[in-house]
């Protein structure tokens, strides 16, 4: 691959405290711990003075430069940040390698991994977070981009209040081109449900898969007819089945806009909560009605007994009068 095995290993295992100094701008960053590693680089948490930042190192100049281009474009987008903001780009003359290693510095986004958040807080958060994600995607699509490599690992939950942010823009592609980077499970091409052309519906397929995989324990692997298999997974899960219409439409690529899918997902979510309330309310009302009915029956019995007693007493009184 672009990154040879040995040099990647070396970059992955830099000891805590390693100081990375840029040869162009001269700023230094002290590495604290590894945050993650991807196909084309390694990201470390680092500090520069008192600020905490994320530093991405790679020996692949080309893909690193492409990523920086995207981060730079994103920072120009008005409103909330689409990805982490780019702070600096430089090269490191490393003592561990003969050649210089390019790196860039970005904002450190502190938060929890998407999958572990759902596991900890419950499935009901999945549609909430996906609704949030769809607003971010809508803005991204309006700018002419497609995120591409959309998966739980590339989402981070910050907060409180919990909110979704995108990480790792390596797959982000201009609309109309071929998606640069993807992960099989979240790729509609792998499932035989569409092309790898960067268009909004590509991301919306992945968004549906994020929801499916986060609600469904155990690994998912394609076997035979992909579409039938995914629909079976949705129907087998009681929670997911409530969102079947939205998910199926996204998997089939029938949403052209993230905003449309967001609207339907929101509608489905509120429908869920209201039916749940109804179901809870219904037995209550029934029991009250039953109680009332039972009360009425008891009333009748009481009346009859009292009437019988009065009649009996009157009968005795008449008898005594006659006997006297």
């Amino acid at each position: 691959m672009a990154m040879s095995h040995t040099s990647k290993n070396r970059l992955c295992n830099l000891p805590t405290g390693t100081v990375v100094t840029g040869k162009w701008h001269g700023r230094s960053y002290r590495l604290l711990r590894r945050l993650g590693s991807g196909a084309n680089g390694v990201v470390y948490l680092a500090e520069s003075g008192r600020t905490r930042v994320a530093v991405k190192l790679s020996d692949d100049y080309a893909s690193l430069a492409s990523e920086m281009n995207i981060l730079r474009r994103f920072s120009k987008v008005q409103g909330a940040a689409l990805g982490p903001s780019l702070l600096e780009a430089d090269d490191w003359q490393s003592p561990f390698a003969r050649e210089t290693i390019p790196f860039y510095v970005m904002e450190y986004i502190e938060g929890e991994n998407f999958a572990s958040f759902i596991r900890r807080r419950g499935k009901e958060w999945a549609p909430v977070l996906v609704v949030q994600l769809l607003s971010v995607l809508e803005r991204l699509h309006q700018e002419g981009w497609v995120f591409g490599d959309l998966k739980p690992d590339n989402l981070i939950i910050t907060g409180p209040p919990p909110s979704v942010r995108l990480l790792d823009v390596g797959g982000t592609t201009m609309q109309g081109r071929a998606v640069k980077e993807f992960t099989e499970l979240y790729d509609r091409g792998y499932w035989g449900l569409g092309s790898r052309k960067a268009e909004p519906s590509y991301d919306l397929f992945a968004a549906a898969m994020v929801m499916i995989s986060s609600c469904c324990p155990g690994p998912i692997e394609k076997k035979g007819d992909g579409r039938a298999q995914l629909l079976a997974i949705i129907e087998a899960d009681r929670f997911l089945a409530q969102y079947k219409d939205v998910l199926q439409k996204a998997l089939d690529g029938r949403y052209q806009k993230a905003a449309d899918m967001r609207r339907d997902l929101l509608a489905a979510s509120s429908r869920q909560t209201s039916t749940k309330n109804e179901r809870k309310a219904a037995p209550g009302r029934r029991s009250r009605r039953q109680a009332k009915r039972r009360g009425k029956a008891r009333g009748i019995v009481e009346t009859v007994v009292i009437a019988a007693a009065l009649l009996g007493a009157y009968g005795l009184y008449i008898y005594w009068q006659l006997a006297m």
Binding site: W24, Y61, A62, A65, S66, M68, N69, R72, A89, D90, D91, E99, T100, P102, Y104
Partner: peptide
């Protein structure tokens, strides 16, 4: 070559390559 350019210029070259 690409490696000898300052990091900011590299981006412009990569745009052509992409």
């Amino acid at each position: 070559s690409l490696e000898d350019l300052p990091p900011d210029k590299r981006g412009q070259v990569m745009e052509v390559v992409d």
